[in-house]
Design a protein around this nucleic acid. Structure first.
Length: 820
RNA sequence: GGGCGAGUGGCGGAACUGGUAUACGCGCACGACUCAAAAUCGUGUCCUGUAAGGGAUGAGGGUUCGAGUCCCUCCUCGCCCACCA
């Protein structure tokens, strides 16, 4: 008989909801455990198998923790604002607000079907006004805290769609939608000053129980570098060029300066320059350069000298030329560098290209064949630094620069401030108001949420203005301070802001006054286990950490790291290839749930590979799990009959055989779940079940398991399976006559004495090669074992007449005879 | 160019702290059941060899009684970031 999954799933889904077994008491829970999974972006195509994979893996962990006695809270929501949803609406010619409702319904239905222990009563969606009211509130708190800034910035621009694009929309230098090369455009933007927390974001990493790969990615992204700021006077002007360098020790080798084309000094110098036209042309050309052209140009350096002005190298008072070149980025450091071609590959290439002088300041080894020399060595051509190594020279030159007022040591970060504004429609309106008299003011809190009006034309406008700018009904308002006429900000906030704080909302969904319910925050946060994809390694996870730090400084919470433990899961590919719509190889979970049931899908997904590494989906593979679950179903069905006939069946030799495996399985499954190694936990369950199912005696005999394990132990077997396959185990648990629910039972315990067998097999090697195995008592000593081993024919043959030089005996494992 | 990770049967993948390589599953072959097929069950399944044996964890070297695991050189693939001074 086949396991009737469809009926069973319906039955238990309803019962779980009715009896609220996945709804912990948020106020009174005794052992709270916040089991969080990264909430999905509800693409309208519905749930991807990748979502099902991530959520199942997270759910198994949560169910395990629940069985260990924790009050597990496992909420779910949707991250529905943002460009993906908006683009989909554009493509389908619908409205994002309508599309969102359709997607929401569909997604929650699919999420319901995968059998997770979700706390449905706390579900949320970021585009609900109840939710984004608090997103806006957070923006205002950040403003009050001095962490919001408005400044000019260059943004991605698609010349064909005539619109601003978010970084996520730029796919290898091209517009995601029309594949046109993306260029840059200067616009005034809102920023969150995440760089204020750079040091803390970096420093705390060490203490976190996170997947190592994510910590490394964050470390690299924050990109701390220690160096110095140095001022180079300009001969023709009072101004100085300030540069950042990590190699102040090479300053004697600075043979020219380079400014980024956008550097503000370039305009100030304009009147002093004799080749103004050429400079202007270069700047125009740079600005129109596409991202791809820039990447293609990495090898060939371009630039223009600012003729008529020169800089003074403070250490030797030599006059050196000033250039502009786009290999220097306006957004990093000070947007200007001292070029040291002898010790920097890019500077070397540039110097070669434009025939600029090259001076080595670090002596390379005699056999060194390259161009720029980056390694350590004694300083040369560097006056009072000569002979020192890099570190020594750095210390000395920084002190010198400081004493002479030319510079100081400085720490720089790769991390930039978080550009929060988007000139798009489908997002939370930024709650700021501009008044000509009073400048920028936050919207009054009583006005929140600033509702996103349902605009008919929500298309990006192409002027650099957001779609909301065409709705005077939206932007016309009064200044909260002087009550004069004022204008609302028409940009919306980045979706990453919505997703940076959703886990505070889950525990406090009441429409009450505060965003943060302090009692519950204390009880439930920080999150105990957070599981999600590694693609969020830097953005989402860094932003969430940043906000937590800011919230702590505001006194809203009393911790600074929001996720105590974090694990990233791998990716599911299909038959060796990444799934994509264009390849048409996307696995849709619904089909398989309909065909095999949710338990089978869940268990198969977890079986294909280690959860943290992902796996390769094969349609054929799922039948293995299908068979496994059906065998279990039939086993328990026949057990019912069997126990009627033989109520106290017990066979000591079967028990002796199975009990150690049974206890080993309890041990291994628990440990493997803790490590998220679900694939091997499932293998172990199969090994045990294969044994239980073996017939006792002849082929027609009853299953060995019946003779070996009692009712309670059969219940324990179901408990071990329960996190993986919640439906079938709940049904069988009931059939065994147990009290509802299997998911609220205590996790079985193993007994050390039952783990081991009296007899073990010892392997016999000669010169490290396997020559035989012997069955011996566990406590066998070296002498006894050696004697038995020498008696084996294959060992005798291998030893021949040679003398045994040495015998290696590893208790419980092997004997190795070393001969020559 | 930088960072991270991975290379094991026909396939997905196991292997504790260096100790029986290929667990578990898929596929395949043969057999049972069946009028037949599907489903199910049983047996077998790294290569080579009749066997004893020999060989094999991307390639090559090293350490060790013993290496998939540790060290060195190289090759291939995947992911992320990329002119970050």
């Amino acid at each position: 008989m086949r396991y009737p999954f469809s009926k069973t799933e319906k039955k238990w889904t309803k019962k779980w909801l009715d009896t609220r077994i996945y709804e912990p008491d948020l106020d009174k829970a005794k052992k709270p455990f916040y089991n969080l999974m990264m909430f999905p972006y509800p693409s309208a195509e519905g749930m991807h198998v990748g979502n099902a994979y991530a959520f199942t893996g997270s759910d198994i962990y949560g169910r395990y923790k629940r069985m260990q006695g924790h009050d597990v809270f496992e909420p779910i929501g949707l991250d529905g604002f943002g460009i993906h949803s908006e683009n989909y609406a554009l493509k389908m010619n619908t409205h994002p607000a309508e599309q969102a409702e359709v997607s929401e319904k569909r997604f929650f239905k699919q999420l319901q079907e995968i059998g997770n222990g979700f706390a449905w009563e706390e579900r949320l969606a970021t585009f609900h006004p109840d939710y984004y009211k608090w997103t806006q509130w957070i923006f205002i708190q950040m403003w009050k805290q001095g962490l919001v800034e408005r400044k000019k910035s260059s943004v991605n621009w698609c010349p064909s769609c005539k619109t601003v694009l978010a970084d996520e929309q730029v796919v290898s230098g091209r517009c995601e939608r029309c594949s046109t090369d993306v260029t840059k455009k200067e616009l005034e933007q809102w920023f969150f000053k995440i760089t204020d927390y750079a040091e803390k974001l970096l420093g705390n990493l060490e203490k976190l129980d996170w997947s190592e790969n994510i910590k490394i990615a964050q470390n690299n992204w924050i990109g701390k570098s220690e160096g110095a700021l140095v001022q180079f006077p300009i001969t023709e002007l009072e101004e100085k060029i300030e540069i950042f360098t990590t190699r102040p020790d090479t300053i004697f080798g600075a043979t020219y300066m380079v400014l980024a084309p956008e550097h503000p000094l370039v305009q100030k110098l304009e009147n002093k320059i004799s080749n103004k036209k050429a400079v202007e042309d270069y700047i125009t050309k740079t600005k129109s350069k596409t991202e791809n052209e820039r990447i293609a140009d990495i090898k060939s350096k371009t630039g223009v000298e600012l003729k008529g002005v020169r800089a003074l190298n403070p250490v030797n008072q030599k006059e050196i030329p000033i250039w502009i070149a786009d290999y220097v980025l306006a957004s990093y450091g000070t947007g200007a560098i001292m070029a040291v071609p002898g010790q920097d590959e890019r500077d070397w290439e540039f110097a070669e290209e434009f025939k600029l002088p090259i001076v080595r300041t670090v002596e390379p080894p005699k056999n060194f064949k390259g161009n720029a020399y980056l390694e350590d060595g004694p300083a040369i051509n560097s006056d009072f630094l000569d002979g020192l190594d890099i570190n020594g020279a750095k210390v000395k030159i920084i002190k010198w620069l400081k004493d002479k007022n030319y510079g100081e040591s400085k720490v720089n970060y790769h991390l930039r401030d978080w550009l929060i504004s988007r000139q798009r429609y489908w997002g939370a309106p930024i709650p700021m108001i501009y008044c000509k008299k009073c400048d920028w003011q936050p919207a009054p809190l009583k006005d929140l949420p600033i509702l996103l009006p349902k605009l008919k034309d929500f298309r990006p406008k192409g002027t650099g203005e957001a779609p909301l700018a065409s709705s005077s009904a939206f932007y016309k308002t009064k200044c909260p301070k002087c009550k004069g006429p004022a204008r609302r900000e028409t940009d919306v906030s980045d979706t990453f802001l919505d997703s940076s704080w959703y886990f505070y909302r889950y525990i406090n969904m009441d429409k009450k006054k505060e965003a943060f319910n302090k009692v519950r925050v204390k009880k439930w946060l920080p999150v105990d286990m957070y599981i999600g994809g590694a693609e969020h390694a830097v953005l989402h996870l860094l932003y969430s950490r940043f906000l937590a730090m800011a919230f702590k400084d505001m006194g809203l919470i009393d911790f600074e790291e929001p996720f105590t433990a974090l694990r990233s899961h791998g990716m599911i590919i299909k038959e060796g290839a990444k799934m994509s719509k264009s390849k048409g190889n996307v696995v849709v979970p619904d089909e398989y749930i309909r065909k095999f049931g949710a338990d089978t899908l869940r268990m198969y997904l977890m079986f294909i590979g280690p959860f943290q590494e992902g796996g390769d989906w094969r349609d054929g593979g799922i039948t293995g799990i299908d068979r496994f679950l059906n065998r279990i179903w039939n086993y328990f069905e026949s057990r019912e009959e069997f126990s009627k006939k033989y109520p106290s069946a017990s066979n000591s030799s079967a028990r002796e055989e199975i009990l150690p495996i049974f206890h080993q399985t309890i041990k291994k499954v628990g440990e493997d779940i803790e490590d998220l190694k679900y694939n091997t936990a499932i293998s172990q369950l199969m090994i045990l079940f294969n044994k239980m199912e073996e017939p006792l005696g002849d082929r027609k005999g009853p299953a060995k398991g019946f003779a070996a394990l009692n009712s309670e132990e059969h219940g324990d077997f179901l408990k071990l399976l329960a996190p993986f396959t919640p439906f079938i185990t709940e049904e069988l648990w009931e059939k065994l006559g147990n009290k509802y629910s299997v998911h609220q039972q205590e996790w079985p315990e193993y007994k050390d004495k039952n783990l081991i067998t009296d007899e073990i097999s010892l392997i016999i090697q000669v010169n490290g090669k396997l020559r035989g195995t012997i069955q011996v008592a566990r406590e066998v000593n070296e002498k006894e074992a050696t004697e038995i081993a020498r008696g084996i024919d294959s060992v005798k043959t291998a030893l021949g007449k040679k003398k045994v030089k040495k015998t290696i005996f590893v208790s419980g494992r092997l004997i190795n005879f070393v001969i020559n």
